[in-house]
């Protein structure tokens, strides 16, 4: 039997529905697929990946010079009698930890743009288009919904921060003679994973929380940009007025800088001293995450009941 106005019959589903576990994964996969439909925003990844190539080459060169060899591009005329001196200088001046720090620091700025582009509309657009009406009529919990959305933005932030840092560290591993970098500085991989995980989680949570407050992507982006600029400005102003760097805790981006400096053992960056308490930075970031998830929970609970 079929509807008289239609040509196809209704077919019954003969299989079985799976129990409701990890429903965030289909949501994550669908979110990434939809985000990748627009190709030109991927240009946001050009600077991080360009920088990754340059920094990886510097690391590669450092280890060659340390071994007394010189890449052809540095010695076009052939053997260079000064390679021993240059190698010694390279070993002293170029620290892989510092380069990885500069990588995560630099990529962190792009990560903000990436998170803004890919994350600001994730919940806002769902609300505007009424997608939550469809989601919450399914066996999908609020936590699954949030994890699915968090996963989407985390994938894009992670690709911009984690991949370049890992590539640089892997270059060091393969360029260093006899796996010496891995045996002596292998913990850098844990440092990278720790920092990028925290960075990604904080940024993604914050981005989603802002996104849940609006119904339009553009409003969320403007709010995020405004908050980052204002909090950084305020943190700088209060630090300068009070001559106390602890006020930097007011800015989530400064907290992330401080965390990176602590993990990769760097003391200052672009003229900003990063010698204030790392515990304070952890507290600041914890506060941002707690507030973000509180906002998210309340907003998503409201979305579900409005659905």
């Amino acid at each position: 039997m079929k509807a008289t106005t239609h040509t196809e019959v209704y077919r019954r589903f003969q299989g079985r529905l799976a129990p409701a576990r990890l429903r965030c994964l289909p949501l994550l996969a669908a979110g990434v697929r939809v985000a990748l439909k627009r190709k030109w925003p991927l240009l946001l990844y050009l600077p991080p990946f360009g920088a990754m190539l340059v920094l990886s080459f510097i690391v590669y060169t450092k280890f060659l010079l340390e071994e007394g060899l010189a890449p052809a591009v540095l010695t076009p005329a052939g053997a260079n009698p000064g390679t021993q001196v240059i190698g010694s200088l390279a070993g002293t001046l170029i620290e892989v930890h510092t380069i990885v720090f500069w990588s995560v620091f630099g990529m962190g700025q792009f990560a903000l743009l990436i998170a803004g582009w890919y994350g600001a509309g994730l919940i806002a657009e769902d609300r505007r288009r009424g997608a939550h009406l469809l989601y919450f009529a399914r066996p999908l919990s609020k936590l699954d919904y949030l994890l699915g959305k968090l996963g989407v933005v985390a994938c894009f932030i992670g690709a911009g921060v984690l991949v370049p840092a890992l590539a640089i560290a892997l270059t060091a591993v393969f360029a260093a003679p006899g796996w010496s970098f891995l045996t002596e500085h292998g913990s850098i991989f844990l440092d990278i994973l720790l920092y990028t995980s925290v960075h990604t989680f904080v940024l993604a949570s914050f981005m989603l929380a802002i996104s849940s407050l609006f119904k339009r992507w553009a409003y969320a982006v403007v709010t995020i940009a405004g908050y980052v600029l204002l909090s950084s400005g305020l943190a700088n102003l209060l630090s300068w007025l009070n001559r106390d760097q602890s006020w930097q805790v007011l800015s989530p981006t400064r907290c992330l800088w401080r965390l990176a400096a602590s993990i990769f053992e760097v003391e200052q960056v672009v003229g900003v001293r990063l010698d204030w308490s790392p515990a304070l930075a952890w507290s600041g970031l914890g506060g941002v995450v707690a507030l973000s998830w509180l906002v998210l929970w309340l907003r998503v609970r409201r979305m579900e009941s409005v659905a």
């Binding site: 799976a18 509309g121 657009e125 399914r138 066996p139």
Partner: peptide, 23 residues
Amino acid sequence: SDCLIPRMNGVELVTTLGRLSGL
């Protein structure tokens, strides 16, 4: 009311919601 998942075509939308239902 109107409800769509932004930037999905018909097949993607129904497939995604089918996955969320346990298919």
